[in-house]
């Protein structure tokens, strides 16, 4: 369904995507896995025709560069964060993007599309009045207009809190079951395990591995890095506690970073729970040979 052949994209002299080739058959859900700056988003943007690139990308029958409009007709795209006219009402936005796909939605269809993503009754709300999770669900509803065979998802849960993230992933998982081809970028292990049928690991623009999700968890045995978002008052205490118990914890702008071995990912949670320190949020990031994460998750 999607064929990426030897795609290279440079910003200046630095290659963001470096000779990546991928073939995503119909019905497959492929995760692009990698740290920030690994080239996931850049590759998706090439697929969407937003960036010029070397190499070839085909979507269905269409070349993404030469025949971009037709190629994008096959895609539904959900960005990290929906940025659109803030004053627009949800229903209006849905209708607008439907028109771009050549559809004029009846009122009942608008309602149905919104209900499909759990936004029933919100058609008259303005985008700026929607919460982050609702915005993402609206973006998903827009992506699903016209029932495109391919969904492109770019770090779609990055701006959501833990609760919203779970709901959203569950929604996507249901969609996967309907035979859609999915190509998504993520650095969250839970997402990948929940959604992917196949994982391609990217590092500095290169595809370094292509494997089933189960293999990936094994491969990550080398360890991951746990990002914990904590109240500022308790951070120093938490770092001290974790070090006492053998974790290499260190402070970071908004929280603390803890490299964890594959088998002990829950360890730090236990430690902090015992000390009654509340974890506001967390994130699990694959460690990629060294401390590339100078800051926490977005």
């Amino acid at each position: 369904m999607i064929r990426i052949e030897n795609v290279t994209k440079r910003f200046g002299r630095v290659p963001a995507v470096d000779g990546v080739s991928l073939d995503v058959p119909v019905g497959e859900s492929l995760a692009l896995w990698g740290s920030n700056g690994a080239g996931k988003t850049t590759l998706l943007r090439c697929v969407l025709g937003l960036l010029p690139y070397q190499g070839h990308i085909r979507i269905g029958e269409h070349d993404a560069r030469a025949d971009g409009k037709a190629a994008r007709m096959l895609l539904g795209y959900v960005p990290q964060e929906l940025g659109f006219y803030d004053d627009l009402r949800a229903g209006e936005a849905l209708r607008f993007f439907a028109r771009l796909k050549g559809l004029r939605l009846a009122r009942s269809e608008v309602h149905a599309a919104l209900a499909n993503v759990g936004l029933d009754g919100h058609h008259a709300k303005r985008i700026r009045e929607l919460s982050g999770g609702m915005k993402q669900r609206l973006a998903l509803a827009i992506a699903l207009v016209g029932d495109p065979p391919v969904l492109i998802l770019d770090e779609v849960t990055a701006s959501l809190d833990a609760c919203g993230r779970g709901e959203f992933v569950a929604m996507l998982a249901r969609l996967r079951g309907q035979g859609r081809t999915m190509l998504f970028a993520s650095h969250r292990l839970d997402e990948v395990t929940a959604l992917a049928t196949r994982v391609v690991m990217l590092e500095r623009g290169k595809a370094i591995a292509d494997l089933p999700p189960a293999d990936m968890t094994r491969r990550l045995g080398a360890g991951s890095e746990l990002h914990l978002l904590l109240d500022a008052a308790v951070r120093a205490q938490a770092v001290a506690l974790l070090r006492e118990r053998g974790f290499e914890a260190r402070l970071n702008g908004r929280g603390i970073l803890v490299p964890v071995p594959e088998s002990q990912k829950a360890g730090p949670f236990r430690v902090l729970a015992e000390a009654r320190i509340t974890i506001a949020d967390f994130d699990l990031v694959p460690a990629d040979g060294g401390h590339t994460h100078s800051e926490g998750t977005p």
Binding site: R89, G91, R107, A124
Partner: peptide, 11 residues
């Protein structure tokens, strides 16, 4: 017009 029609209809 389109927006109004939608909003009135929607409410």
């Amino acid at each position: 017009l389109p927006a109004c029609v939608f909003e009135i209809g929607g409410r």
